[in-house]
Design a protein around this nucleic acid. Structure first.
Length: 479
RNA sequence: GCCUCUUUAGCUCAGCUGGUUAGAGCGCCGGACUGUUAAUCCGUAGGUCCUAGGUUCGAGUCCUAGAAGAGGCGCCA
């Protein structure tokens, strides 16, 4: 081919010069009427249409232009005669870079289930749905960093391998270089971790929060954004064993500042995608609407995707205390009629069905619940004046539930120490954490946002395994 | 960890209360078609009905166990 430089399809569609010669490369999304190739290189949602005059090309070459084959096209930009696009490329030279034998290739130009595509993760990003999801996933990650950078936060990398198992956020994955059968033993027959790589027991992190507090109490405003691991045997469409979490931690913030941050941060992310990825969102919205046509009315979304996102950014999140939430649920119709599976008394955690009622039926928008009973929350959350509750908050989103969980941290050394003793948290292991209260401590607060749960909400997808390229769930670590 | 559902052609599914040659659409392959937008039209091929046992004259259909997938709950983000 010539010395012409490749043009990305995104920039070609943005400002095309009629009659200009261009070189494009990408994957064939469709080859219609032996004449029209829909070509996509991932740079944008939209395809460029390549028009082929079959008399000018070898039949054997055209045969290789099959679904998802990779080709290079040199041609001239013209105004399109068809109605689906404004410009198109009249092909002059075509080279097949990588064929995709239709007989053996597992994907087809038709609807295939997300479950099937999940098993073909090496190819699923070539589909409209997954390329839209993963473009948006990227953009949300970018917006996370942009939001915090623009607000004067420092991005802090907390460790992925931790020596502490006191974080209390769930079951951990053990990290060791020992093989199970040959691990050295001490005199009592227990595995001797003093001889292991780190000289002690280590695990994959379940949260960067405790380390982020170190950052907050020195640099003021920090956030972590990294992979997090939970060895919980959770079989749901909202849990992953390996997921990404965003954890801001801010000195001098109280629980109300924390709620303000959680709300403005959530809205920023949604707005960023609304502003910058309209084609992808429109496609995802249409996909959901088509799919829901087969469902009874009560099982469909209350609002189409984009309208839902707009509604969330245009309205204040509802803020209620745990105590008020319990009273609301208990005086609700479904509760009185015994429609809920679980009972609810003050002191018990709100069940998913109760949260769903609050968010989807009562308020119809994100709800922040604050001031939970201390006995159902972690040791580091700040005790309230009433002696019964702590300054903890959960942000609940429609259709997903908890997307953010956070708190004002207990900055009073004696109260924290007493709470650790009560909850049997190792004082020795967390002496550094207690030091933050002993020396130069101050009120501070932070939260954790489940990144994939935010991606779920913004894309309107329903299974968390479809918003991460390579999902890790119980019994599954393919790719 | 608990509960429920699903598994039939390459893909998406139908197959009623067990009954003899197992069905459709799409895809593939062959043919037609130079303005299509999941192109269309005609034709052909394609099945260890997830696996292993069992019940029965007879099992895709019933029973038991296992495997894989999905949904719900709990745990959480």
């Amino acid at each position: 081919m010539s010395t012409l430089r490749r043009t990305e399809i995104a920039s070609l569609l943005k400002d095309a010069n009629i009659n200009e010669d261009v070189l494009v490369k990408g994957w064939v999304r469709a080859f219609r009427a032996n004449r029209f190739i829909a070509l996509n290189d991932g740079s944008a949602f939209d395809n460029v249409q390549v028009v082929v005059d079959f008399e000018n090309f070898d039949e054997a070459l055209l045969k290789q232009i099959s679904f998802h084959s990779c080709i290079s096209v040199k041609g001239k930009i013209v105004e399109s005669q068809g109605s689906g696009q404004s410009i198109e490329i009249i092909a002059e030279e075509i080279e097949v870079l990588g064929g995709a034998d239709s007989d053996a290739y597992p994907l087809q130009p038709k609807k295939q289930t997300l479950e099937y595509l999940r098993e073909k993760a090496q190819f699923r990003m070539r589909t409209n749905t997954f390329s839209a999801v993963f473009r948006i996933r990227h953009a949300i990650a970018y917006a996370v960093n942009k939001f915090y950078h623009d607000h004067g936060f420092y991005y802090m990398h907390t460790p992925i391998i931790t020596g502490s198992d006191a974080e209390g956020a769930g079951e951990m994955f053990h990290v060791t270089t020992f093989k199970p059968d040959t691990a050295p033993r001490d005199e009592d027959g227990a595995v001797d971790y003093k001889k292991d790589f780190f000289g002690k027991e280590t695990n994959l992190t379940v949260s960067g929060q405790l380390q982020a507090e170190i950052g907050a109490l020195s640099m003021g405003k920090v956030y972590t954004f990294g992979p997090t691991f939970r060895a919980e045997n959770s079989n749901t469409s909202r849990h992953l064993a390996e997921f990404w979490m965003i954890e801001p931690e801010v000195a001098f913030n109280d629980i109300n500042d924390n709620m303000d941050l959680a709300e403005s941060f959530s809205k920023y992310l949604i707005n960023y995608i609304l502003d910058n990825y309209p084609s992808d969102l429109a496609f995802l919205e249409k996909r959901i609407l088509d799919m829901e046509k087969q469902l009874p009315k009560e099982k469909r979304r209350a609002m189409p995707l984009i309208e839902t996102l707009r509604f969330v950014v245009d309205n204040d999140f509802e803020r209620i205390t745990y105590t008020d939430a319990v009273n609301l649920v208990r005086s609700s119709k479904p509760f009185k009629k015994g429609k809920f599976e679980y009972d609810l008394d003050w002191g018990k955690d709100l069940q998913a069905e109760h949260e769903r009622w609050l968010v989807e039926k009562k308020f119809k928008k994100p709800v922040i619940v604050v001031d939970y009973p201390k006995d159902i929350k972690a040791f580091y959350m700040r005790a309230n004046e009433d002696g019964k509750t702590v300054a903890a908050m959960d942000v609940l989103f429609p259709g997903i539930g908890e997307v953010i969980g956070g708190s004002q941290r207990e900055e009073r050394h004696d109260l924290l120490l007493a709470r650790m003793k009560e909850m049997d948290v190792s004082e020795e292991e967390l002496s550094w954490y207690l030091d933050l209260r002993k020396f130069g401590g101050c009120p501070h607060a932070g939260f954790g946002m489940g990144f994939e749960r935010m991606v779920l909400f913004i894309t309107g997808m329903s299974n968390i395994r479809d918003v991460i390229p390579f999902p890790r769930t119980p019994g599954n670590a393919e790719f």
